[in-house]
Nucleic acid binder design. Structure first.
Lengths: 351, 351
DNA sequence: ACTAAATATGCTCGTATAGAGCATATTGGA
DNA sequence: TCCAATATGCTCTATACGAGCATATTTAGT
């Protein structure tokens, strides 16, 4: 690790004093892959940029844009990411942040262990979806196509009651290894908490936990590819969202979780908005990401009161009613408040 | 990246259709290092486990426990981490979570670029500091020794007024490249927001931002090692906290940030507590991490009201006054509330 | 031109919660 | 025995937030 980079330390003769292993352990090199979940909101629909390819063994076609990290070319992970996203899709990224580093074998792994080891570092990027302008590759697809149970904009999604809940109940009742049930929370409780069953409130930030639960329960198609579910058992199930290749759906789930969390304490919505917008458009964007939360009047009070926006002076007509005042992001808020964001609190248990 | 692991896709002949580069880009392999910020609270002092070694060029001796990740031995990053932490320090980790993946060259880099490229993945682990029991290596050291400006338990730290504020002011007034001042926030504003100057409130979560600012301003010793500050300029400055080797102080800053944030919405304090404790002890632990926040009565109301603890029935005498009731962590709270934590809100601007 | 529907916007009220202070209980030690 | 120190309970107040009512302006339809 870094130690060696600084180049100052001499190898200590006494092994137990310092690192347990020899330096040449670092010779066990792996490839570094960068995956980008590039998110926008287009016509009130949250979309991610995906690339389509040949179907894999479970019929998954979509991947997130990805590329290798070459430390010789790029000084930082982020600059490497920006560079090849630009090359590959024609998109110039604005806001980007690191999500998580995944390295599990076992997940999305070859049965034979001969493939090179790769660690993938997931990134989240937020951008405006100004049409498909300049996109040389890839397409925008609603993230709710991959996670239909996350879309609460028209109330509680049918798919939870119809497909998910009964199957998770069955999974919870299936006998399980004793070791699992002891340390961690029981399956039934996990399912209840994740999906807001039995009157438990829905937590929109638990996107990753929900997907992981479905994966563990063998309900995500990817579980079949990874050999967690017998093929026979797999075929007669309803599709719970579009699968993606490799573990990209997990990375996208992480991205959605992060976006939903961050929007509340950082002004990241504005990365998704044009320069000028109405408060209603802003609200629809927030709701596209989080689900319906606030009623209009309170939302106005919230964003104006927090100093997040300022009127441009113009109005937008042809809205179907009274013209709406146009606003812009008030950047000064970054200099004023320590954690400005659209502080919508938890919804009152729309179970 | 993962694509190759799944082993299903054939290389597409048309390069622009998919990845911009050839698969052999992944041959550009790097070493993976795991760094652990292992945190405990010992006698009301937040401590991190560090290992001492030979002084480097700036006299830094301490490193965080670290080791290589060998994907052939370990299925996940976390299991690799747990394994060598056990081997190296004798400590069995309980709670652990991934922090961030660092790969910057330039930071903590050799002047000559011949050293192997290493990506380091930082982890945060929380544990009880039951003496030095069973520690085969390493020592516990207060994290405020590395970050004295973070310790607000006895009011605003002197070091901010005396050493940091004037130097940051000078740095802010120094001429800067136009490119920097345009896009990002001005230096003076960054300093004000990070360190709560000019009446701006102190945000205890901005630990990493503050350290990065000091580093950029050439006030962290590590900046001298990385060649960001001329040696002459460096020698006549007060030490702003103990430096660490490589970029370990940055990783520790990330760990503190995460701990301070997470304690508010997840019951992670209890990872640091013994099984039974008084509410005053719990409060002291929280304050060791965050700084003094709540007055006693409200803290009691908070944790009891949230259902985070339950009385054991016993009391602890010899507290110097009326015996205190003993409490234990109420695990059921995990099944009840979506985000249980010690929800202390921002302090009322103790500037 | 007039009306209905749709949207934008302002105001108020009740409840929940957090910050702060006062009061009381129970101990150890001078 | 009394005081100092700690533990614990209660109340008051300001604020934030969810929710509903009321009004202003526009478009679409007759």
């Amino acid at each position: 690790m870094n130690m060696e980079l600084s180049g100052r330390r001499k190898p200590t003769p006494d092994k137990s004093q310092r690192a347990p292993d020899d330096e040449q352990d670092y010779e066990i090199s792996v490839g570094i892959g960068l995956n980008a979940a590039i998110v926008a909101v287009s016509e009130n629909e949250p979309v991610a940029l995906v690339v389509r390819g040949e179907p894999d063994s479970i019929g998954a076609t979509d991947v997130l844009p990805y590329g290798p990290f070459n430390p010789r070319e790029h000084r930082t992970l982020e600059s490497g990411l920006r560079s090849w996203v630009q090359d590959q899709t024609g998109l110039e990224l604005g806001y980007a942040e690191q999500l998580y580093t995944f390295a599990d074998r076992g997940r999305h792994a070859d049965p034979d262990d001969t493939s090179p080891h790769v660690v993938s570092i997931g990134y989240l990027a937020l951008t405006q979806a100004i049409g498909h302008h300049g996109l040389t590759n890839g397409l925008w697809r609603s993230w709710y196509q991959y996670f239909p149970w996350e879309d609460w904009r028209r109330g509680r999604p049918e798919i939870i009651t119809r497909d998910i809940e009964p199957r998770l109940k069955a999974w919870a009742e299936r006998p399980t290894a004793a070791s699992t049930s002891q340390t961690s929370i029981a399956r039934a409780d996990r399912a209840r908490i994740c999906f807001g069953l039995n009157g438990t409130s829905w937590d929109e930030e638990k996107v990753l936990e929900r997907f992981e639960l479905l994966y563990e329960a063998g309900l995500a198609d990817e579980a079949a590819r990874d050999g967690r579910v017998a093929a026979r058992e797999w075929t007669d199930r309803p599709k719970l969202g579009l699968p993606m290749q490799a573990d990209h759906r997990r990375i996208l789930a992480t991205a959605i979780s992060r976006t939903r969390a961050k929007i509340k304490y950082r002004p990241v919505v504005f990365e998704l908005m044009p320069d000028e917008f109405t408060l209603y458009e802003l609200q629809k964007t927030v709701e596209a990401i989080l689900g319906p939360h606030l009623h209009k009047q309170n939302f106005r009070r919230l964003v104006e009161g927090a100093g997040l926006v300022e009127p441009t002076g113009d109005v937008k007509t042809r809205t179907g009613g009274r013209p709406a005042k146009l606003f812009r992001f008030r950047r000064e808020v970054l200099l004023e408040r320590p954690a400005p964001g659209v502080r919508v609190s938890a919804p009152p248990s729309r179970a």
